Every structure is written in C-alpha cells, then in structure tokens.
Amino acid sequence: MTGGVDCIFCDIVADRREGHRVFEDERVVAFLDARPLFPGHTLVVPREHHETLTGLPAETVGPFFERVQRITAAVESGMEAAGSFVAANNRISQSVPHFHMHVVPRNPKDGLRGFFWPRSRYAGEDEAEAVAARLRSALGE
C-alpha cells in the first residue's frame, strides 16, 4: 500500500511537507520528531504506507529494521548518548497511523519515565504459564 490519504508521514516521504531528514534510501525515510523527548529523537518510517508493524510485508521487516539499527547507532554516536530507547506504538497511542519507530537518545538520569506504565507480576507460575499457552496457541493459528 502506498500513499496513505491525509498521512503526514507520507507527505514527508513525498516531500510535500517539511521534515528534518536524517537519512533516506529506497526503503525508509528518517527524520527528527517534531516534538522530541530529547534532541536527536528520530522517527524511522517505511516509504510505503503501512499502518502497523503487523501490516508490514514480511520481506520488508528485515531491511526496515536493518535501517533502524543503523540509525540507532548514528543517533547514539551523533548525540553522544550513552544508549537509546527504540520503540513503536501499534494502534494504541500511535498518533500518526503510518508505522514508525522512535529512536530516542538516552543518558543516565535523563529523567525519562513512563514508557512502561504500571508494571506488575503474574499472580504465580500457573497464571504465567496460562498466558504463555494463550500466546503459543495464537502463534499456531
């Protein structure tokens, strides 16, 4: 699928809208997030419009993530960061319905919190095994 209707990221990819590009090739475009968590916060998008990770064609996944890996190294190096946070929302909290990865430079004590809201534990081994079994079953479908 190409060229999402009224898609901000498709407009950036097609040069119809300004984006501070960091990288581009035949598969992806990477540009600075307009509302960064920290300077250097970069978004990596496939050139073709796919709304979610599960919508990416299988043959696209590997090459896409090879670029994410390269851009992550550049963000860490270029921003002199100790590490990075690399993440994607899939429908929920996805402000633009065009699949994208966030690459955020990180440093110790940078104040970033809240990405993994309330974490808890399973009630016990039985509950954990039941959840694992549900996921194994879904993978077998």
Rank of each mutant, 00 (worst) to 15 (best):
P39F: 07
H49Q: 05
G124S: 15
L37Q: 06
F31R: 06
N90Y: 03
R16Q: 03
H20C: 07
L112H: 14
E48G: 01
K109D: 12
G55I: 00
E80Q: 07
M101P: 10
S84I: 05
M1N: 01
A74C: 13
G111P: 10
A132K: 05
A123Y: 11
T72Y: 09
L56M: 00
V131F: 07
R136W: 02
E26P: 06
H49G: 03
P39I: 04
R67Y: 06
V96N: 05
V86G: 09
L139W: 04
E48F: 00
P46S: 00
R16D: 02
G62H: 09
M1I: 00
V22R: 15
S95Q: 12
F99T: 00
G55W: 00
S84Q: 06
F9W: 06
G55F: 00
N90Q: 07
T54P: 01
R70T: 07
S84L: 05
L135N: 04
P39T: 04
K109I: 11
A30S: 15
P63I: 02
F85Q: 14
E80P: 03
I92E: 14
R121V: 11
P105H: 14
C10S: 08
R27G: 02
A130I: 12
I8K: 10
E127F: 13
E125V: 09
D25F: 06
F85M: 14
N90E: 06
R134W: 11
A82T: 14
T52K: 02
D126S: 08
T60N: 01
W117I: 13
G40H: 07
D33I: 02
R119H: 13
R47Y: 04
V45Q: 04
A123R: 14
M1E: 00
A82P: 11
D126E: 07
R113H: 13
M79H: 12
V44E: 02
F85Y: 13
F116A: 15
